[in-house]
Write a protein that binds this DNA or RNA. Sequence first.
DNA 1: CCCTTTCTCTAGTGGTCGCTACAGAAAGAA
DNA 2: TTCTTTCTGTAGCGACCACTAGAGAAAGGG
Lengths: 205, 205
Amino acid sequence: MVDMTAKPRGRPRSFDRDAALDQAIKAFWEHGYEATSVADLTRAMGIGAPSLYAAFGDKKALFEEAVRTYVERYGGFIGRALAEEPTARAALARALREAAEEYTRPGRPHGCLVISATAPADTATDVAASLAAMREHNVGLFESRIRADIAAGVLPPDTDAAALARFTGAVIQGMSQQSRDGVGRAELEAVAEAAMRAWPPETRK
Amino acid sequence: MVDMTAKPRGRPRSFDRDAALDQAIKAFWEHGYEATSVADLTRAMGIGAPSLYAAFGDKKALFEEAVRTYVERYGGFIGRALAEEPTARAALARALREAAEEYTRPGRPHGCLVISATAPADTATDVAASLAAMREHNVGLFESRIRADIAAGVLPPDTDAAALARFTGAVIQGMSQQSRDGVGRAELEAVAEAAMRAWPPETRK
DNA sequence: CCCTTTCTCTAGTGGTCGCTACAGAAAGAA
DNA sequence: TTCTTTCTGTAGCGACCACTAGAGAAAGGG
């Protein structure tokens, strides 16, 4: 266990690590992993390169921490919708609706960092593969939630859980890219609404 | 008018320009614009850098020609579906179905070059903006096709053409990204099928 | 043959990439 | 104060980036 209150021995850090991380998140979020250079990062974070490397490791490690913190800080709405709504249908309807809002929120980059931060095979490192795995993981969460509702009789027994989960994930990914292309909140909310029409109705209890 | 049969004066080109362009298309398609270096291109195309610059201009011009040729050579299925099918619903159902097939075809990169070749604000140049405009243009084509069917009484008069077009575009974009993430043809066909359930039925003539 | 034209090859250009050696600055410990 | 520890700023590392100057090679025209 690390003692979080222990006074550090040497010269104290001259910047707010968390605030600097948040600026790094915004930079990666806006420009993507490859297109954000270390020089861009040090400028956005207001620190020198050696401070960046001392505090965060290398560029890849900083990106990984940025992604982790992004998911907690900005991407939590999907997890909340899944956790708080009573049914899969309600949860994913809310996730889609909130995605339209979150992906177009003024004052921050549009779209989703996890969905849009890497080009195809973006780098020799496995950064792109790691984000792809996170996207697939989300589809798996959707599918489990749908399966639970089928088992509980909330969704019809002939529902294709995997297809419905993957379809919903595809719509969210498409919404993220469209928000980056400049599409506004109202249009994306209409996309979310249209997507829910592909869902089977809940069977009455 | 340029005379295409005139014998060129100097030393003839030692490579097949069209075959080299096709290799460039595949390289950009697989790795994206930024991540494909000129060294990668010369290797894939089997020519030296000066030959590349003489035949195609600079990297950006080569990419633009690659995109144009890609659309003709590999991305034509959407235009064909729109042109050949009798209704908007049939056209976009076919486009989605064929996207599942095209985006996972063995022996070539997965997904769509226009959708997936650039990270967010990929470059200082306007390459990313140009691709975004092409994506939006496609959504506009979908919308016109849907409007025509509403006017013809094939789709219900309360159909939201813009929303339905944008939704369908979002699904195609999501399918492209998922195919890059390794999702297979059968799963994407299920996504296409699910998406069409969001469409209103055609009103019988 | 020689001349002109165009392409190809070698070998670089300056610039940016991610990253770091090193010296000095700022803190606690003694 | 002096020592130790840790961070910060300068300055620059080798590698790669997109791109090209210059010399020679390969064609047609005379």
